[in-house]
Amino acid sequence: MEVRTIKVFTTVDNINLHTQVVDMSMTYGQQFGPTYLDGADVTKIKPHNSHEGKTFYVLPNDDTLRVEAFEYYHTTDPSFLGRYMSALNHTKKWKYPQVNGLTSIKWADNNCYLATALLTLQQIELKFNPPALQDAYYRARAGEAANFCALILAYCNKTVGELGDVRETMSYLFQHANLDSCKRVLNVVCKTCGQQQTTLKGVEAVMYMGTLSYEQFKKGVQIPCTCGKQATKYLVQQESPFVMMSAPPAQYELKHGTFTCASEYTGNYQCGHYKHITSKETLYCIDGALLTKSSEYKGPITDVFYKENSYTTTIK
């Protein structure tokens, strides 16, 4: 009895394709271990004539594949690729409408935090270190965002349907971005203890939790000093293409032309909904596939993004 075979390709990165001759009487799992086709788990399936010449994702289970996976995804987590594939199996079914010149995501599976993050990423200057993220990001900007969303979920250790947080998501993504040249110098002034300067680099240099107003941050924000008295913390120097200011959701007025974009969060910790506000020729609110415009805006804002380049204080 002759062994019926077909020729397929296996890959971990969709760049390096490895030619395989597979036995049609055995499952993919018996031949390769966990195997995925377009995100779908085909591990328990036997090869079919229609699979001839198709590319299958496999887990990096030998040295060659491990090197290829690390170079593309910059992670050695053995569960990463499987999590990416199972997320992709959902995100490829989502709709990605162009809204006001940006790629958004039609609401499904509690994905409003991903839509808000995706919209924000198209408006701030950011370059990702893992080629996987950078490639998928370019495709997302062009309207094909399924891979990018699935990668975000995998890097953030999230599953489809789980509630997510924009600030946490951005923080994970910033860790995989090139923020080497970003720098922030802060000064804390206390009447009792004097003053202390701190220099922050990388992710810490672009994120701040405690106030939404970048102007206020430049002037000074009140913080408790270690001595128990009130101290003032203010920005001395900022070198970065953008800054992200966050605070627990509270009524906040966004003035046209003073910011790049913002995240609105309605609801409580267990259950809520994100919308995205962007400042173009007027203010726009993007909620999944829905767009509304207004000249002014007041609502429960939790993150505001500002364009920056270089700032030095005039406070002496």
Rank of each mutant, 00 (worst) to 15 (best):
residue 50 S to R: 11
residue 311 Y to M: 09
residue 246 S to F: 04
residue 171 S to H: 15
residue 150 A to I: 00
residue 43 T to K: 10
residue 65 L to S: 10
residue 253 E to V: 11
residue 196 Q to C: 09
residue 13 D to S: 08
residue 272 G to S: 08
residue 96 Y to G: 04
residue 313 T to M: 15
residue 46 K to F: 09
residue 263 S to E: 04
residue 7 K to H: 13
residue 283 L to Y: 04
residue 226 T to Y: 10
residue 112 C to I: 01
residue 299 G to S: 04
residue 204 E to Y: 13
residue 46 K to Y: 12
residue 193 C to I: 05
residue 122 Q to G: 04
residue 264 E to T: 06
residue 259 F to I: 05
residue 82 G to K: 15
residue 70 F to Y: 13
residue 268 N to E: 06
residue 27 T to C: 12
residue 63 D to H: 12
residue 94 W to S: 06
residue 224 P to R: 14
residue 44 K to Y: 12
residue 277 I to R: 02
residue 153 L to H: 01
residue 93 K to L: 14
residue 124 I to M: 06
residue 224 P to A: 12
residue 222 Q to W: 06
residue 228 G to N: 00
residue 49 N to H: 13
residue 205 A to K: 05
residue 247 A to M: 05
residue 193 C to Y: 07
residue 166 V to M: 07
residue 304 V to T: 00
residue 9 F to A: 09
residue 65 L to G: 05
residue 163 L to T: 14
residue 126 L to G: 01
residue 21 V to Q: 12
residue 207 M to K: 06
residue 135 D to N: 09
residue 53 G to C: 11
residue 274 Y to N: 00
residue 316 K to S: 15
residue 91 T to K: 00
residue 71 E to H: 10
residue 131 P to F: 02
residue 129 N to G: 08
residue 34 P to M: 15
residue 213 S to C: 09
residue 212 L to F: 07
residue 47 P to G: 08
residue 282 T to D: 11
residue 230 Q to D: 11
residue 169 T to L: 08
residue 266 T to D: 09
residue 78 P to K: 13
residue 192 T to I: 11
residue 284 Y to F: 08
residue 97 P to L: 14
residue 30 Q to S: 13
residue 132 A to N: 04
residue 147 N to H: 13
residue 20 Q to T: 13
residue 300 P to G: 00
residue 270 Q to W: 15
residue 48 H to V: 11
residue 101 G to I: 01
residue 183 K to V: 10
residue 166 V to I: 01
residue 150 A to R: 03
residue 295 S to M: 13
residue 140 A to L: 13
residue 20 Q to H: 14
residue 37 L to S: 12
residue 92 K to E: 06
residue 88 L to G: 02
residue 238 Q to M: 02
residue 247 A to W: 00
residue 113 Y to Q: 03
residue 296 E to K: 10
residue 124 I to E: 02
residue 165 D to K: 08
residue 95 K to L: 12
residue 278 T to F: 09
residue 229 K to V: 05
residue 4 R to L: 11
residue 184 R to I: 01
residue 21 V to G: 10
residue 69 A to E: 03
residue 61 N to H: 11
residue 33 G to L: 01
residue 77 D to M: 06
residue 276 H to Y: 12
residue 153 L to Y: 15
residue 252 Y to W: 12
residue 35 T to Y: 05
residue 303 D to E: 04
residue 120 T to K: 00
residue 88 L to W: 09
residue 148 F to H: 04
residue 52 E to G: 10
residue 3 V to G: 11
residue 25 S to W: 11
residue 280 K to D: 08
residue 69 A to H: 15
residue 7 K to E: 14
residue 3 V to E: 14
residue 315 I to N: 15
residue 192 T to F: 09
residue 192 T to D: 15
residue 72 Y to A: 13
residue 242 F to E: 00
residue 235 L to K: 04
residue 197 Q to F: 09
residue 280 K to C: 11
residue 45 I to T: 13
residue 310 S to M: 15
residue 278 T to L: 12
residue 115 A to N: 11
residue 129 N to A: 08
residue 271 C to D: 08
residue 300 P to A: 08
residue 80 F to C: 03
residue 121 L to Y: 03
residue 288 G to F: 00
residue 173 L to V: 07
residue 13 D to R: 08
residue 207 M to F: 07
residue 176 H to A: 05
residue 249 P to K: 05
residue 155 Y to G: 06
residue 68 E to V: 04
residue 204 E to P: 14
residue 156 C to S: 08
residue 64 T to F: 09
residue 194 G to V: 03
residue 226 T to N: 10
residue 125 E to K: 07
residue 61 N to S: 11
residue 288 G to H: 07
residue 41 D to H: 06
residue 307 K to H: 12
residue 102 L to D: 02
residue 201 K to L: 09
residue 98 Q to V: 14
residue 287 D to R: 01
residue 64 T to R: 12
residue 88 L to Y: 11
residue 272 G to E: 02
residue 168 E to R: 15
residue 103 T to M: 03
residue 70 F to W: 08
residue 274 Y to R: 05
residue 291 L to I: 12
residue 147 N to Q: 10
residue 185 V to E: 07
residue 12 V to S: 06
residue 177 A to D: 05
residue 303 D to Q: 01
residue 53 G to K: 12
residue 18 H to E: 05
residue 230 Q to L: 13
residue 221 V to K: 06
residue 184 R to D: 02
residue 84 Y to I: 04
residue 263 S to L: 08
